[in-house]
Simulated assay, not measured.
Amino acid sequence: MIKEGNAFFIALGLYSLATIAYIVFFMLRKEKYAKYGSLIIKLGIAFHTIALTVRTVEASRLPLSNQYEFATSFAWGIALCFAAFEKKYNFKALGTFVTPLILLIAFYAALQSREIRPLMPALQSRWIIIHVLTAVISYGAFAVACGISLMYLIRDKFKSDNFISNHIPDFKTLDTISYRATAIGFIMLTIVIVSGAIWAEQAWGRYWQWDPKETWSLITWIIYSVYLHVRLTRGWKNKKAAVFSVLGFIAILFTYIGVNTLLTGYHSYAFISML
């Protein structure tokens, strides 16, 4: 059977190649490279799924309990969401803006320890599955929304021609797709916070600790709730909405990478379990 580490690094290599293919496609405007990128990213997802499956078998649990496991699952979730949106809306330029995010998180995972250790008592709960899986889906959807929003913000910088018309949707379509991805992410993030509160009460006797991770998750939730509120009540769309989407994903990245690296708290158990 293929080793988990080998499968992960093959996936990482494929994600790198896919990113290069999409960038070459966008810069040289040669459609064949987008086809290569789309095929390679799917191969990457396949090997990534194998890596996660092997990890699950070896650990006798879902791979959702430490920095490496969540980071690799996070990258996998972004890749899956991207593949789904690319297939549904059929515009290849999306890969130029989303695959670098997949690669960023995958490389972050590669820097973490892959050692398998028993779950700490606080992690031995059925809520871990709901809490972390919804986080993976949420972050993946927000990453896609961020990529689409970046595309929106720079679309008017490119001279309109057949390539732009064929491979980048108009502003209205980009805005709509970004909104749908954000709505999915927001629903999942709400479940993340609620399930985390229930889990915290069982593990520590309190629903909310004002832990740095909890606080930044709440800040991120507020950013996206403001985005949805002003969009629905005041008609904020287009560029303002795109800026909110990008800021929201920056908050997501800080919540996950920045908080874990710079701050300590109850959620440090996942980081400590690797030391």
Rank of each mutant, 00 (worst) to 15 (best):
Q202M: 12
F158G: 12
W204V: 08
V194D: 04
K157F: 15
T173F: 12
Y207K: 03
K239Y: 10
D161L: 09
W199E: 08
M188R: 03
P169E: 08
G196L: 01
Y179P: 03
T215Q: 03
K159E: 15
S225I: 00
I168F: 04
A197C: 13
A181Y: 00
R234T: 08
A183Q: 13
D156Y: 12
W199N: 02
A183E: 14
I168G: 00
L232M: 11
N238K: 09
T190A: 11
T215G: 07
W221R: 01
I198N: 04
T215D: 07
N166A: 11
W199T: 08
L174I: 06
A183Y: 12
T173R: 09
I223L: 10
E214P: 07
Q202R: 10
F158N: 10
A197W: 02
R206L: 12
T190S: 14
D175L: 09
W210I: 13
T233K: 09
W199Y: 14
V192E: 02
G205C: 10
E201M: 12
K172W: 10
T215P: 09
S225L: 07
H167E: 08
I187M: 08
V230D: 03
G205P: 03
V192M: 05
S165F: 08
F171T: 11
A197K: 02
R234D: 11
D211G: 08
R234H: 11
G185Q: 01
K237D: 10
N238M: 14
I184W: 03
F158W: 15
T176A: 14
I193N: 04
I198G: 05
L174D: 01
Y227N: 06
V194Y: 03
K157N: 11
V194S: 04
Q209K: 08
D161V: 12
N238D: 15
K172M: 13
N166S: 14
T190R: 01
I187Q: 01
I164R: 02
W221S: 01
S178Y: 04
K239I: 09
D211K: 00
V226L: 10
W236Y: 11
I187R: 00
W208V: 04
M188N: 11
L189Q: 04
I191M: 06
E201Y: 14
R155Y: 11
T190Q: 02
S217M: 07
D175C: 06
M188A: 15
S165K: 11
W216Q: 06
V230I: 15
R231A: 06
G185M: 02
R206Q: 14
G235E: 06
K237Q: 10
H167K: 03
E214F: 05
H167S: 05
A197R: 00
W236Q: 01
W221D: 05
W216A: 05
V226P: 07
F163R: 04
D211Q: 05
L189C: 10
R180Y: 11
T173M: 15
